[in-house]
Design a protein around this nucleic acid. Structure first.
Lengths: 208, 208
DNA sequence: TAGATTGTTAATCGATTAACAATC
DNA sequence: TAGATTGTTAATCGATTAACAATC
C-alpha cells in the first residue's frame, strides 16, 4: 500500500464527519453525502476507500459504524498515541492545555524546555528539562513530537529528537529542517499561511 | 494573473530563505541554490518567477535585494497587515503573544472573546467582548481573521466575522466552515496533522 | 569567445473525476 | 424487476520537471 499524504488527510476528515453524521442519528451513508460534507467528489471518496479495500453495499451505501471502525484501525485510533511537546513557550504551553488532542486519543506524555519551570501550571503535563529529552523518548518509546522552540534552536533540538527515536515531527518553527530519510516532518507555518491569505484577499482573487 | 495557492506559498518560502542568504552575505543567487534551500527544483523556482515576470540575469542569477523587494510587493509586505484573533482561549492567547507575526509585518489589532477578561495580561493586545466584533472590523477595515473558538461556536462566529467584512480566515477549529464565495478559509487542523504523522510513522512508510 | 544560467516549451507525472458496468 | 449506488477503468486535468535555445 503506497498511500499518499493527501489521501490519508482525507481519511481523517471522512472519519470526523462520520462521527457527526452518527451523532445526528444516521446509520448508513452514501459516498455522495460524505463527499459533500468534506468538500470532495463522490468518486474521490469511493476511490480512497477502494485503496484500503473498504467496501459498501451497492445501492445501500456504507454502514457508518463499520466505516468509522475501519478508518480508526487504519489511522491507529484503536490505541492511545503518545507524543511530546518540545519547547514550552507560548505556543507549546497552549498545546499542553489543548483539549482536542485527548478527545482524539492523542496523549502528550511530557513537555521539554530549557527552563522546566515554564508552563507547568494547570495543564497536567509535566515540563521536564531539555537535558532529559533523549533519555525520556527512548525509555517511553515515543515516535511523534511537536516542535515549538525558537527558530535558532529548531535544528539542533530537532536533531536531538531524532536521536531519541522520534520519527514524525509537527514543526511550528519557520525553518526548513534538515531531515533524515526515516523521519517525516509536517510544517505548520502560521506566518506563511497568513501571508497566503493576505495575498488572495488583497489581490481580490479566490484561492484554489 | 491566476496564481495558484501552492505557488504563492512557495513565494513566501523563497522570500524567507532569501533573507537568510542575505544575512550570510550573499548578493546574488542562482535558481539552483534557492531551490535547494526550499526543497524544490530549480525549474520550479524559475517557473514561479516567470509567472510574476520576475527575471534574473542569464549567467548571473538573481540579485537577492531586488528579488526580496519584488516578492515583498507581491505578498503585500510593503505595508502592515491588520488581523484580529477571535477566541482568546489557550491557543488564541498564545497567538497574541507570538513574536513572529510582528517580525513579518502582521499586526494583531485586537482579540475578541465572550469573556474579555481572558488573556489580556502581557500580550499588549486588547481583548474585547465578542459583541463588539462586527463594529470593530468594519470601523478598522480589517479583512483577515484568525478563528480560535471552540468547535460548537465556530460557524456562528465565522458568520459574524464575514458579516463584519472579513475575507480571509485562518481556521483552527476542526470543522469544515460553510464559506461564501468571496471569503477564503485556510484550515489548520492539528489533530488531523498529527493523525497523518501517526499513520506514516506507525505504518513505517515515508510520507510524500 | 566559451561556458553557464535563465526563461520557456513540451513532456511527464500524478491526482482527480467522469462514466459506466456490475449488482444489490 | 427497476432503480440506484458502488467499484473501477479510462479520460481529464493540472502541476511539476526535463530539456534546450537564447543570451549574458
Amino acid at each position: 500500500m503506497v498511500a499518499k499524504k493527501n489521501c490519508i488527510l482525507r481519511l481523517s476528515r471522512y472519519k470526523n464527519e462520520l462521527y457527526r453524521f452518527k451523532k445526528l442519528g444516521f446509520i448508513k451513508i452514501f459516498s455522495e453525502y460524505l463527499a459533500d460534507a468534506v468538500g470532495v467528489t463522490s468518486a474521490q471518496v469511493r476511490k480512497d476507500f477502494s485503496l484500503f479495500d473498504i467496501s459498501g453495499n451497492k445501492r445501500g451505501g456504507y454502514t457508518i459504524d463499520a466505516l468509522i471502525e475501519k478508518l480508526n484501525v487504519i489511522l491507529g485510533k484503536n490505541q492511545i498515541q503518545k507524543v511530546v511537546v518540545v519547547g514550552a513557550g507560548n505556543l507549546g504551553t497552549a498545546l499542553l492545555r489543548y483539549k482536542n488532542f485527548a478527545k482524539q486519543g492523542i496523549r502528550i506524555e511530557a513537555a521539554f524546555d530549557l527552563d522546566p519551570a515554564k508552563g507547568s501550571q494547570k495543564s497536567g503535563v509535566p515540563v521536564r528539562p531539555m537535558t532529559e529529552l533523549e533519555t525520556f523518548l527512548r525509555r517511553n518509546d515515543i515516535k511523534i513530537g511537536i516542535l515549538c522552540v525558537p527558530e535558532v534552536a529548531a535544528q539542533s533540538v530537532f536533531d536531538a529528537m531524532v536521536n531519541g527515536g522520534i520519527r514524525g515531527v509537527l514543526n511550528f518553527s519557520p525553518i526548513q529542517l534538515k531531515t533524515p530519510a526515516d523521519c517525516i516532518v509536517t510544517n505548520v507555518n502560521l506566518e506563511v499561511e497568513l501571508e497566503n491569505l493576505i495575498y488572495f484577499v488583497t489581490a481580490g482573487q479566490s484561492a484554489k
